[in-house]
């Protein structure tokens, strides 16, 4: 086939366009547009109540948009011929019957989707849950429940993975496992869209980010680019009992000096050796001298400042 190369790529691209959702008295999502590419992990970030869950549910046809469209490979979710072979999703508030065993939960889904019966066993093995296959869901720990959700998403070996706050309730070991698992899926060329409010985790996991606040897009792009785009680059943090003396020693150069809420100096425009040398020259006593690189958390807080909070 002549288009054999390009088709998988197009099939796995997510396009959200002008998407809005009005609940009775909340505009949960407001004219939101972004794209998600295959072969990368895309972090979908926003403060609580920003509209992440609502957006993902509209993408999956669980919630009807008030306006706009969301497509996967150019088609709305209900138009996909075999949705579970195309898209796997792990959502908040999706669960299993408390009295059903893990393996039976997966068999029920496989039956509905017309997948072979042994896919249930394979998916369970993939997430390391085989020993708990015949235990009832109510006896599962939070981490096991989350893994069962991922097994359900992997049943159809989909090209697109959508996860809503998958790190919630996981212990550090579980989070590390999840990170490796999702990175591996992206490396295989799949599309991975993960919502989260855990920013340090996202910085380790995501290649791209889509940041929203109050239902609107704030920024989209590769993580490095989004961080680099912020006005504040690398800063040097200095704690000293002689702040004024150091400030005047640096005056006249490229350094821009600010004071943070704890009285430490945040110096931009020069590197740590320059500051150290200036301090030595002026005979200023230093208690701390560290280089601060901007991280996702700082960028996120600056971008979403004033837009967070309960709506």
């Amino acid at each position: 086939m002549s288009d054999g190369q390009s088709r998988p790529t197009n099939d796995a691209q997510i396009v959200v366009s002008g998407l809005s959702k009005q609940y009775r008295n909340v505009l949960a999502v407001n004219n939101l547009s972004f794209t998600v590419e295959p072969g990368r992990v895309t972090g979908f970030l926003g403060p609580n109540g920003a509209g992440k869950t609502t957006t993902l549910r509209m993408l999956l046809n669980l919630v009807t948009p008030t306006a706009g469209t969301a497509t996967i490979g150019g088609r709305r979710y209900p138009e996909l011929a075999e949705p579970l072979r195309h898209v796997g999703a792990v959502l908040e508030a999706s669960s299993a019957h408390k009295g059903r065993t893990g393996i039976n939960h997966l068999r029920v889904i496989s039956a509905a989707a017309g997948l072979p019966r042994q896919r249930a066993d394979e998916a369970l093995a993939l997430v390391g849950l085989t020993p708990a296959a015949k235990r009832k869901f109510k006896g599962y720990s939070l981490g096991m429940k989350q893994r069962l959700g991922i097994a359900a998403a992997m049943l159809g070996d989909p090209r697109v993975l959508i996860l809503d706050e998958p790190a919630n309730g996981l212990d550090p070991e579980g989070i590390r496992w999840m990170r490796g698992f999702l990175k591996g899926l992206a490396a295989e060329g799949r599309t991975v869209l993960v919502s989260s409010h855990l920013l340090s985790e996202m910085q380790l996991l995501a290649d791209d980010v889509v940041i929203i606040a109050a239902g609107q897009l704030v920024r989209q792009g590769p993580v490095d680019q989004v961080i680099g785009s912020m006005a504040q680059g690398v800063r040097v943090r200095v704690r000293t009992p002689q702040a004024e003396a150091l400030t005047s020693a640096l005056a006249g150069g490229p350094a821009r000096v600010q004071t943070d809420e704890h009285g430490a100096l945040l110096i931009a425009g020069v590197d740590a050796p320059t500051v150290g040398r200036a301090a030595l020259g002026a005979g200023v006593e230093l208690h701390e001298l560290t280089t601060e690189r901007p991280d996702l958390e700082r960028v996120f807080l600056e971008l979403t400042a004033g837009k967070a909070g309960i709506r």
Partner: peptide
Amino acid sequence: TNEFFHQTATTTFLATPR
């Protein structure tokens, strides 16, 4: 009602959006 009580409606309608 089990689908709503046990929150399996999501999984059910993901497997079959029709």
